[in-house]
């Protein structure tokens, strides 16, 4: 029986196969999913903002840069090997549009760019991403197979 481990906003969790990691209702936030396909362990972070620098600080799992550091530390402490790690991500939507006003700052896009940069910095290949749009996503990540299942209300369901 697979366990489903739920990841909240500004939160991160790790798991071993056959457990599944879940985060529900991603809007502008990003779900970063990383796993070691050989050891079948992995983790998921639900980040809200691009960078901890220049911010008020607080919970490090809230920011793309600091959350990734935490996540990688925990995955490698479970025995995963850095050079085998693979990443996928989803989220970064623009949920609201104010008529007549351009979006002040497209936080979803900025989040996605930040995650991409941080992954590159850590030498982890980003295999695929499902980013943008104006709809919410619920994601399930199988740390064994690396399958990322993305469910939406009105934009279908897919596995990447």
């Amino acid at each position: 029986m697979n366990g489903v481990i739920s990841v909240g906003m500004a939160d991160f969790k790790t798991a071993r196969s056959p457990d599944i990691l879940l985060t529900a209702g991603l809007g502008s936030c990003i779900g970063i999913c990383i796993h070691d396909p050989h050891l079948k362990v992995g983790g998921m972070a639900h980040i809200m903002l691009p960078s901890a620098s220049g911010s008020l600080g607080g919970n490090p799992a809230k920011y793309a840069d600091t959350a990734l550091v935490l996540l990688l530390k925990e995955i490698t402490s479970m025995g995963a090997v850095s050079s085998r790690l693979r990443a996928k991500m989803a989220g970064g939507a623009q949920m609201f549009a104010f008529p007549g006003k351009p979006p002040v700052l497209k936080i979803g896009e900025r989040n996605a760019e930040a995650v991409e940069q941080e992954l590159k910095k850590n030498g982890i290949p980003l295999l695929i991403a499902d980013i943008g749009g104006s709809f919410g996503r619920t994601i399930h990540f199988d740390v064994g197979t690396g399958e990322l299942r993305i469910r939406t209300i009105n934009h279908g369901e897919k596995v990447i």
Partner: peptide
Amino acid sequence: SVPALAVDMIGASLDAIFLEEGLLDD
């Protein structure tokens, strides 16, 4: 201000609202 609407997952709508103009408190 002018109202905006999203018909979607409540978590997705709320996170976008929290993050608008970069909410930083925990």
